[in-house]
Design a protein around this nucleic acid. Structure first.
Length: 826
RNA sequence: GCCGAAGUGGCGGAACUGGCAGACGCACACGACUCAAAAUCGUGCGCCCUCCGGGCAUGUGGGUUCGACUCCCACCUUCGGCACCA
């Protein structure tokens, strides 16, 4: 071989790693563990560049940390349940299980060709009975802990996917998977009480300093905590009824001039029943409920309110205010009833103007009454002093919030309350290819959990799939019939399957003991390996998977099954891969696949480019010429090693260490320092790689300089070997090959990461910049750590500076040791 | 509307806690090698001028400072999250 042949090298080492089982990990309490995890993929069929990016990042860390003596676990698996398998199966007339298995096989080969150092002994597949058995078991755990329940309610329905969606899976009113408009349907469905954990999911974000702020913020927004008061209004002529309303501004309670109920509010019907408004109101309710989520919540849709003909009684001043039904009030938030305070809320203000409802100012910005109804053009929503508020008048509004709440609590008219935007997690899916929900319905006993000993409730694999019917377990002969686990009588099985986000909410635990057959995971193994030290994945899961997985972990913590309250210690949200300014897509014709890159240039080139082009958390613009540049660098590296290993022993021995040797060693140690810091502390792989490039340039420069005299063998060899080690996490195959070419023993990936010697970085002369009034006017070379006064003196007396300063008065001089002198002169 | 991130050469991107703006790479130009090309190597490469020198430059406008890509204020643009959330 006379040039760099990536294919040959990569096949050679991949084979060897596999034969030697190089990346197997075992729990070992005498070693410090490190858990590196990339979000496992859905086996869609082929890897795309996003995959290649996330695996490249993870593999750099895994390989680097192994060389830093950590006991690294780096597993990979398959999020294998889900709709695309069903759809593809129907289209191609194959079985989803076969389709999935084929995809997994193919993608696994692709991953291996990338040279990612996974421990394949830990591979998991969420669609295998060994795995979903424990997904079911965990569902039952939640059921027993009162966290899983079935409820009839309005849910998000996607017609294209023929199934329901959790709120997190609706993006701007569209299905996250297919972008179809989501409708509302009333169905009886299984939910997980994630709302019980809202407070902890919010508070514990503080314990995650290793997470990007933006992800934490997104979760915070999603959970949407707000404090306020729940206030009870009585209803005139309905002594037995009351309306509970939630407000964050109890201090504005005296400014209530009307009340609005959500169309779904249970009181709407009784209020209008038998009155002349009944038809109009109920028609409006029916019409509103038919509208889709986006139609109803869109900004353009005008607020519509209808008077019910009834009045509510303000608990603090006894005033009677009209009760309306409004399309903008959401039943699912707070209490489904809003008190209207037009003077101090934008929406209420617009609404009141539209329907000519009275407006009353109860907060003034200052002690003097400045707000005037006549001139009021918009709501005043800030703090101020309470007015027209009985005995509370004059109180600061912030104080007022507390005082009014306390008063209401005393009088039994209300209480302090916290509300969250987050809703319970809807987990039923009306499709076949998923984990069956292990519940049996009996006329006598109702919903009964399948006994643990009967798990798994197996998914039949010989399901008849046809294009004209949505695949569902309800259609599988014999699946529905069951015996009631309580009474043994005839019963029916739940036919819905679980949201696949359940499967991915605990897979990182399964990796710690993938073959455990008596529990979802072995507690000792989980204790040893958990938490995931470094998690890497796309930002698109900021509030989906990442929130669900945190929730599961907390439930398992409460059940005493894990010792961690958070699953992922550090999170790296990697950016997307673009080309020509757009997301890669078939329709745009700008797709580059990992396969073609591996084929043309080799995996090492692809990995290097993807890491070099941009820091991992930023979006990356794919550039074919950039790839070639990286390939060029690897060729240059290969040549350097090949030429040097041939020449080192042939070249004349040069024992002395002159300036060239010192310079080479400085470059080497500077590179070691930079690469280590960039990988470990900053994840700036792009600058780490550029440091390696600079080092290679320095070695070339040394070789060129010493071409005639001969090299110092030892120093050149050390530089080469350490360069190869530095390159190993990024270009693992070429590094391994180079290691061998240099005649070194063992695998380069088992070497210790080199330490840098600060002494080697020291120089005895430094160049110092001279500024006059902040502008660079010259530079001088001085001994390192030259004292300030001498530095200034030398600067002033240097040729040009002296001239420039002529006739000027020096006011002062500022020095930065070994860097610059700034002379301030007039 | 609220919250957040980001704006640096022709391009991707560097610049640690304020101290030489543009590392590294791509593209481009010129040169060497070659009959020629590729590969490789070398040199140059922010903009402008009166080019030994100097001026202007990190989205815009101010400010703090001896000194600002970096800190402060205001604004513009792009991207992301939440959004009749009471």
């Amino acid at each position: 071989m006379t040039t760099y042949n990536a294919t040959q090298i990569e096949e050679k080492w991949q084979k060897l790693w596999e034969e030697q089982d190089s990346y197997r990990s075992r729990a070992d309490s005498s070693k410090t563990k490190y858990y590196v995890l990339e979000m496992f993929p859905y086996p869609s069929g082929k890897l795309h560049m996003g995959h290649m990016r996330v695996y490249s990042i993870g593999d750099v860390l895994a390989r680097y940390l192994r060389m830093r003596n950590f006991n690294v676990i780096h597993p990979m698996g398959w999020d294998a349940f889900g709709l695309p398998a069903e759809n593809a199966a129907i289209e191609n007339n194959v079985n989803p299980a076969d389709w999935t298995a084929r995809n997994i096989e193919h993608m696994k080969q692709q991953q291996k060709r990338l040279g990612v150092s996974y421990d394949w002994h830990r591979e998991v597949n969420t669609s295998s009975p060994d795995y979903y058995r424990w997904s079911q078991w965990l569902f039952l755990l939640m059921y027993k802990r009162g966290l899983a329940y079935k409820k009839k309610s309005d849910v998000n329905w996607c017609e294209t996917c023929a199934t329901v969606l959790a709120n997190e899976q609706v993006e701007k009113g569209l299905c996250w998977r297919c972008s179809n408009v989501v409708e509302t349907r009333e169905l009886e469905q299984w939910f997980l009480r994630i709302t019980n954990y809202a407070e902890r999911l919010l508070n514990d974000l503080e314990q995650l300093p290793g997470w990007p702020e933006r992800v934490k913020l997104m979760q915070q927004n999603w959970i949407g905590r707000s404090e306020g008061a729940e206030i009870v209004f009585r209803v005139k002529d309905f002594p037995e009824e009351e309306i509970r309303t939630f407000t964050t501004r109890p201090d504005t309670l005296f400014g209530v001039t009307y009340m609005v109920l959500a169309p779904e509010h249970p009181l709407v019907r009784p209020l209008v029943e038998g009155t002349d408004r009944e038809k109009e109101v109920l028609d409006f309710v029916a019409k509103t409920r038919r509208e889709s989520e986006i139609d109803r919540t869109s900004e353009e849709v005008p607020k519509i309110g209808l008077f019910t003909g009834r009045y509510a009684v303000n608990p603090v001043n006894g005033e009677e205010v009209p009760i309306l039904v409004g399309n903008y009030v959401l039943m699912a938030y707070g209490t489904g009833a809003v008190m209207g305070v037009p003077a101090h809320d934008h929406r209420d203000f617009d609404f009141a103007r539209k329907y000519d409802l009275p407006i009353r100012v109860v907060i003034q910005p200052g002690k003097r009454a400045e707000l005037d109804l006549e001139t009021l053009e918009e709501a005043y929503v800030d703090e101020g002093y309470m007015v027209n508020s009985g005995s509370f008048s004059g109180t600061d509004s912030r104080e007022g919030i507390k005082k009014v709440t306390a008063y209401l609590e005393e009088q039994g008219l209300g209480n302090f309350r916290v509300t969250y935007r987050i809703r319970d997690w809807l987990i039923s899916r009306q499709r076949y290819w998923g984990t069956p929900i292990p519940i049996i319905y009996c006329d006598q006993w109702g919903a009964a959990p399948v006994p643990e000993s009967d798990l798994p409730v197996e998914l039949p694999l010989d399901m008849e799939l046809s294009g004209n019917r949505v695949p569902s377990l309800a259609h599988y002969p014999g699946f529905v019939e069951a015996k009631c686990p309580e009474c043994g009588g005839e019963a029916t099985r739940e036919t819905d399957t679980m949201d696949t986000f359940i499967c991915s909410s605990w897979y990182f635990l399964r990796f710690t003991s993938p073959n455990c057959d008596y529990a979802p995971f072995d507690p000792d193994d989980a204790d040893y390996w958990m938490p995931v030290d470094q998690y890497i994945g796309g930002i698109e899961h900021a509030v989906l998977h990442l929130l669900y997985a945190r929730y599961f972990t907390k439930v398992l913590y409460d059940a005493g099954m894990v010792k961690v309250i958070e699953p992922f210690n550090r999170l790296l949200a990697q950016g997307m891969v673009y080309k020509d300014g757009a997301k890669m897509s078939k329709s745009k014709g700008n797709v580059v696949t990992p396969d073609e890159i591996v084929e043309r240039f080799g995996a090492d080139t692809g990995r290097l480019f993807i890491l070099f082009a941009s820091p991992p958390e930023k979006d990356l613009d794919w550039n074919d010429q950039g790839v070639e540049g990286c390939h060029r660098f690897l060729r240059r590296m290969w040549r350097l090693v090949a030429d040097s290993s041939a020449e080192i022993d042939a070249s004349p021995v040069r024992a002395e260490e002159g300036e060239h040797e010192a310079e080479l060693q400085r470059s080497l140690h500077a590179a070691i320092k930079k690469v280590s810091v960039d990988i470990e502390e900053r994840f700036n792989f792009n600058t780490a790689i550029s440091a390696i490039m600079e080092l290679v340039n320095s070695i070339y420069a040394y070789r060129q300089a010493m071409d005639k005299e001969g090299y110092n063998r030892e120093i050149l060899r050390e530089a080469l070997e350490k360069t190869v080690i530095l390159l190993a996490p990024f270009a693992p195959h070429l590094a391994e090959e180079s290691w061998e070419m240099l005649g070194c023993e063992g695998s380069v990936h088992r070497q210790h990461w080199p330490a840098y010697d600060p002494q080697m970085l020291e120089v005895d002369q430094v160049e110092v910049v001279i500024q006059i009034n902040g502008k660079v006017r010259g530079r001088i070379t001085v001994p390192t750590d030259c004292p300030e006064d001498q530095l200034v003196e030398k600067a002033r007396s240097s040729d040009r500076i002296g001239e420039l300063l002529e006739g000027k008065e020096i006011i002062k001089a500022i020095t930065v040791p070994n860097k610059l002198v700034n002379i301030v002169a007039r």
